[in-house]
Design a protein around this nucleic acid. Structure first.
Lengths: 234, 234
DNA sequence: CTCAAAACATGACGGGAATCATATTTTTAG
DNA sequence: CTAAAAATATGATTCCCGTCATGTTTTGAG
């Protein structure tokens, strides 16, 4: 198997020594999933590393009450969430659900583990990656703890635009199908509230479109709305 | 300097080879802080690793609106938050504030870095630690996103009891001074709301006491309240 | 011990967001 | 193309929780 033609690098693999990298590409298995299937579910034993090759995947957790929270939307190159489980040999704390057709790389955990031991540079790279993710999630937690729902949604849109946005003349296109429900699950609000807020954003020319073609029209305004709503809308 | 007489291990140091460990203990500096001071502040350059030796420290982030969010309460043995910054050489995304008299170990970042490269086992240990922290914060984010304020508070108390609680005949004592305001900052609600909820918990014999001596009387009940409030209180 | 400051407590009120209900539009499947 | 399903939209109502106001208790410094 050959390295994927990904736009992004795979720092967690690329930093390995040539010989180990070849070894990895030999052992790695590519798998395909489509919307509605699951790559793994909450509670499954964590046996593999997963790296997203193509498409988008969401990591979700459900509550007993049947509500659902999207922890993160993964892009090509991302290591799947639930790292602790993989390293500890425990269970996945969340479910990985494809948001469309995706292909992922599946890598035996023990093997990667052993190779990391031989590649301290790569281990440090993993440490950096996890540290970055940790800071990201803490930032998200702060927003969830303190901000109003419209600010949360604005923050989310800003983050999505920066991570998965494609620049176009009219604005920044989000190249994933994201329904109002999807957005709602990412910031812990209801779809109805999301729709109402998005309507306001639409009127103010901050965004346009719906799930099929979501566009961010005014990123700076959205960003300042997130930190101070009154500065943008009355 | 000698290893601290901590109840907890310091996995991030203990796993090093004997020789490197001695090296570290030679270079490490112990510092003391008291309430009201800061160990480092949001925006400071991250130059050192910090490991908490004695006392408790909270990592907080502030919003432009003047609100404050406590990301985590650190216990002896904990590596300070903001790991990404340390590894990346960036700025601290949060402030570290002592909750009482504390002593911390300060360790040159470059040095630890280099030693990690020579100790792959230790690097993997750091990876595990970060992975665990990541899972913790994601769990917290889920709670902040989906749960009511009384559930959040119950979850917090359960977590605190498990992490810093001391078993006693009457219940589990929290050995840190935690005002209602402190609790409020940890779950993103107001002190007033916290007081009202704590009063209800007190009536139901789930907790007792105030900042000076906070006691968890019924941990199982609190835990089930967190996942389904109606199962405990009508 | 005394007194000021901090923490705790409680009430009234209002606003933001959830819930439930019902259209309307868009997308998808056959 | 057409029908069914999914997504978007909007209104009415309820209620959780933030805000403000005021009072009581506890704490800690001198």
């Amino acid at each position: 198997m050959n390295p994927p033609p990904s736009r992004r690098e795979l720092p967690l693999i690329d930093l390995l020594q040539e010989q180990d990298r070849r070894e990895i590409w030999k052992q790695v298995k590519e798998e395909h999933y489509r919307k509605g299937e699951y790559i793994f579910r909450e509670g499954d034993r964590a046996e593999y590393f997963h790296i997203l090759k193509e498409g988008t995947v969401k990591c979700v957790r459900a509550t007993s009450a049947g509500k659902e929270c999207t922890l993160k939307v993964l892009m090509p190159g991302d290591l799947f969430c639930c790292e602790a489980a993989v390293f500890d040999g425990g269970q996945h704390p969340g479910t990985a659900a494809p948001m469309g057709d995706v292909s992922i790389l599946r890598l035996n955990k023990e093997q990667y583990f052993n190779i990391l031991k031989k590649n301290p540079e790569a281990a440090l790279e993993v440490i950096k990656y996890l540290g970055k993710r940790l800071t990201e999630v803490q930032e998200r937690a702060k927003i969830l703890a303190l901000d109003r729902s419209d600010q949360r949604l604005a923050s989310l849109l800003v983050g999505l635009a920066e991570r998965i946005g494609v620049s176009e003349p009219q604005g920044i296109r989000l190249d994933v199908r994201l329904t109002r429900q999807d957005l709602a699950d990412m910031v812990g609000i209801t779809p109805e509230t999301t729709i109402r807020i998005m309507s306001r954003f639409k009127q103010a020319k901050l965004v346009s479109g719906t799930a099929k073609q979501l566009m961010i029209l005014d990123l700076p305004a959205l960003r300042s709305f997130a930190s101070d709503p009154s500065s943008v809308l009355p």
